[in-house]
Design a protein around this nucleic acid. Structure first.
Lengths: 227, 227
DNA sequence: ACAGAAAATGCTGCATACAGAATACAAAAG
DNA sequence: CTTTTGTATTCTGTATGCAGCATTTTCTGT
């Protein structure tokens, strides 16, 4: 599915606006390939082959792989290259436990630090997400869902918190991406999101923190079968 | 300071035991250089020069730099290379806030999940640390201190938690490394550690969590002037 | 026919070479 | 004297080539 041309190295726009660095492009491209299952867990990242597929030589590819290794998506095996990291059910549960703790903290901080405009943006994302939910558009729902959680982490105003949150969320993306919840669980998740937004708009720290915590507890129930 | 020979690429030991990969060696070497202040914040990592200093070509060096970038220690500027990341006072405070939250969680989990042997190891580290404290050996005290916190995070049995903790701790190492606390604050920190160990041995979740939280709150007081 | 050893193949790891971008400096014009 | 533009140098970004290790295949001896 990923052809050579899928990796556009330059902005095609008019004028010398802004060049996208190849490194960043490669990293996000590989990340996507892992998340979306193009590169299943356990797959060896063959430098020559993969580089040819993407139309890139081995050098920048290797750099991107090292970056992803530090991010925790791939594992480096000395003299044997890199393989896509495999997460056990316990790993996923553990990640969700940490994510829960981080989001509870983020919720509390966000109620204090967020600007009204920032909260309004999250509300807008939420409304859009609900629209997608009603339309049954799973993919867009899923993406907006992630965006909302990311946005709340950022509203905390704590960069380190947002960083750690983003890292865990990235590792979990693949799991959630394949986790297909039934209609009733899906509805419950949306309801929890409603609560979240309400608490955020009311700047009710404890309530937001509690809802976020509960939401992630339930998230485990929703994905546990997929793992 | 760092000569060419300082980067031994092979184990000099007898027999074909286990070869250390250059990548790992380079990464930890650069990490140390940043933490110990050999490469102050804002320093541009000059590939040619640095590579020559370490006796390594640019290729593996670049890969190591990318790894560290993902780790958050250096920043990549497109077309301009990498610079050692600079942390503001707020950044440090934010990191400590997250670390506090993580350690509180780790403490609770450790009380449930840790083995008696694991707890005994932490106790041993602690006793050794107190000896170093009484001897006035700041460097060893500092290192054992870090080890203890790392060990507790690992006792939680939650790999993701240990990961996130290690990452934040690494980012903060440089700060703590230069943070020179006075005798009274130092004594207070040791006292808090005594409490921690006692709570851990008693497997008293709430108490351990509380002490760890307090300890990190105070940590900010101890380093704030150094930032 | 089967087990063990040796050779061959393929891939990773590192170094080097080349191209392009950014910056610094200098010279010329206003 | 200031500003701007052209040029040169330096460093990053990418490609390629070579050597070593791991694995697989093949050959040989029993």
């Amino acid at each position: 599915m990923n052809e050579i041309t899928s990796l556009e190295r330059r902005e095609g726009g008019p004028g010398p606006i802004r060049r996208t660095a190849l490194h960043d492009t490669l990293v996000s491209h590989l990340r996507d390939m892992i998340i979306e299952g193009d590169l299943p867990p356990g797959t060896r990242l063959h430098e020559g082959q993969l580089g040819e597929q993407l139309g890139v030589s081995r050098t920048p590819l290797r750099e991107a792989i090292k970056y992803l290794a530090s991010e925790g998506l791939v594992e480096l095996v000395p003299s044997r290259g890199a393989v896509v990291k495999r997460f056990s059910a316990k790993d996923v549960r553990d990640m969700l436990t940490v994510l829960q703790s981080l989001e509870e903290l983020a919720g509390r901080l966000a109620c204090e630090a967020a600007s009204d405009a920032g909260i309004a943006e999250v509300r807008a994302l939420h409304d859009e997400m609900v629209r997608r939910y009603k339309a049954g558009d799973r993919l867009q729902y899923y993406k907006l869902n992630q965006q909302i959680h990311t946005a709340i982490a950022q509203l905390s105003g704590n960069a380190a918190l947002a960083d750690m949150h983003a890292m865990l969320q990235t590792r979990l993306k693949r799991i959630r991406f394949i986790g297909h919840e039934g209609p009733e669980k899906w509805a419950a998740a949306v309801a929890e999101h409603e609560e979240m937004i309400a608490a955020l708009e009311a700047r009710d720290k404890e309530r937001l923190s509690e809802v976020l915590g509960r939401h992630l507890m339930n998230a485990w129930e929703r994905v546990r079968d997929a793992v």
